[in-house]
Write a protein that binds this DNA or RNA. Structure first.
Lengths: 337, 337
DNA sequence: AGTCGTTATTGAAGCGTTTCAAGAAGGTGA
DNA sequence: TCACCTTCTTGAAACGCTTCAATAACGACT
């Protein structure tokens, strides 16, 4: 159906090799020939066949990105950063969302592998990283994003989540809160457990402070709302005076439930802190205090690592880059702010 | 480097044709052979090469989706709907964001064409649709999303934006507002101009009502903030008493600016209505009244059209599906709500 | 006139699949 | 025993591109 390079060659009266050269290294082809070929291309509406190029080249010119949730603005920002950096180097980014499901993550990675992507960026759900080892073994560089590599076996770009958890909890404690509820899950996700552990360590240092964990099934607005409703049903004396949500989506859900019922005031009755500092957090009913992560920068940096690892080959040095999270105080914890 | 089907064949002691059959139609291969081949595949860690498959097949098994802004939750929801529907039929969705730039849109489409995608979903920036005609001519079905095809030459899934504009303006007028500012742009984008025209038609019917247009460079939070600051600088007697933002992102920006400075109360001094009804609109400082579009459903329906058009071939009937927008009233227009 | 360089072009090989006509092997009925 | 199915398996031919060694053409230099 579509015109091939051979059709163009015939039309222009040259060989296929020459057409290919016009396409890829026009400077080595005589000007007149370039013109003739270009015209033939125009005439026939020829468009390169990417599959054939890739087959020949052996590998694709795109990176694969697997995120936990494609609808979370934090990951969208991260993807945006990755894409921008990739385009600069002539690469393309394919994105897939694992939706917190290891099976889905697995099948996305499989797809990427079949596609022979030039590298994979992933924020893994699955704690079992053997599939990632497989990929690397197959010559595909892998970089973890938004998550460190505990044993330093993979390159990674992350934010110190334990410290982030500490920052959040410390902030709440400094405000005099003592009954803190941690809302987040699945706990299996490293980011979540790190943030929890950070908070736990700080709470443990204060004699009369307690930390209660309420695990969610996902990091979504809906789950936040669900947990908030649970909290609302508690008798006043067993109710927490602060909520630390593992991400802003959860925090927004929690906030919505509190505000909608109108029975609990934020922050007077209950303080609320989120995580990620997505754009929407500042625009919430009660602007949400959050722990900021530089999403765009993380994405861009990760692609940078991928590029250098792809360059260096299998024996490339692994590099762990860690950003420091930053507290952004807003009205959901400090009324007047 | 990676094992090919030929390596598997050698390892299992069969021909390449048989391996291919095991992969694609295992039911026609003897059980013992299947086992032997499967084992060899396992052993060698063989993974199909997608490029080769596609080359052979002639076309890819993915759809391309071009949206105006990958960071707009509305489009993310749309993409989500599209993806879900596509996966059910064994397809994959590639997404690109044109960021309101015709050049970028052009290059994304080019990429899709080189990729020989099975179809294209697009919410075009460019008013010139010749590239889309080209695609169709090349045998690639095209479906417009979130935007009708005025001359019915393309299939489309959209929401009646003119009616949406009317709904929004009518709501503001019914609340007694008379000096309405329309915030949106670039006006070249069909969705924007339709919404504006809808609003205009309704405003024209009320003698003492006026509609002032403030064009933005993009449909983003930042641009909303910028315009709101312009409005804040106006003397009180020339200030609008209502803002109709062309989408929720703009509306949120506008709201942020008003609230931050604290000089204008929403809705008392100035009412605000957005468009799209993204999840975050309801969680805003002042929950934002909006015109709802069924994003997920639009995406899913569009992929459905694509599938049937791909099935039917070049002479497929074009189908225009139009959803009706729906007003969602919140506190940004009706104080007590 | 012959040799060498430079510049431009050629054509075949091969990337890893799928498909398909053709063949092999084994079973059944006359 | 032979012919004829049925069931499996085979191997070669594409698919459209890039690469690369080989050639051609043409001056320039000796």
């Amino acid at each position: 159906m579509a015109a091939s390079i051979r059709d163009v060659a015939r039309e222009a009266g040259v060989s296929v090799g020459t057409v290919s050269n016009v396409l890829n290294r026009p400077e080595i082809v005589a000007a007149g020939t370039v013109a003739r070929v270009t015209q033939a291309i125009e005439q026939l509406g020829f468009v390169r066949n990417d599959a054939a190029r890739q087959l020949r080249a052996g590998r694709s010119t795109s990176f694969g990105l697997v995120v936990l949730d494609t609808r979370n603005p934090f990951f969208m920002d991260l993807a945006h950063g990755a894409q921008r950096r990739a385009i600069d180097d002539g690469y393309t980014v394919l994105m897939g969302g694992s939706d917190d499901s290891p099976e889905r993550e697995h099948s996305i990675l499989e797809m990427f592998e079949e596609h022979r992507v030039a590298g994979v960026l992933i924020s893994p759900v699955d704690t079992d990283l053997t599939q990632l080892w497989r990929l690397r073994h197959a010559g595909i560089p892998v970089v973890l994003v938004d998550r460190g590599s505990s044993d330093r076996s993979f390159s990674s770009v992350s934010v110190d989540d334990v410290e982030g958890g500490r920052i959040a909890a410390r902030h709440l404690l400094e405000l005099g809160r003592r009954r803190i509820a941690f809302v987040g899950g699945p706990i299996g996700i490293k980011q979540v457990s790190d943030r929890l552990n950070g908070a736990r360590s700080v709470v443990a240092e204060v004699a009369d402070a307690t930390l209660e964990v309420r695990e969610t099934r996902a990091l979504s607005v809906l789950e936040g709302r669900r947990i908030a409703e649970e909290i609302l049903e508690l008798p006043a004396d067993r109710r927490p005076d602060a909520v630390f949500a593992a991400n802003d989506l959860l925090a927004m859900g929690v906030l919505q439930a509190f505000v909608m019922t109108g029975s609990l005031r934020v922050p007077e009755d209950i303080a609320l802190i989120g995580y990620d500092d997505i754009d929407f957090a500042s625009a919430a009913v009660v602007p949400i205090t959050s722990v900021r992560q530089p999403a765009v920068e993380i994405g861009a940096t990760a692609v940078g690592l991928l590029l250098s690892e792809a360059q260096a080959g299998a024996d490339a040095a692994r590099e762990q880059i860690e950003f420091t999270p930053e507290l952004v105080v807003r009205a959901s914890t400090v009324g007047g702010a």
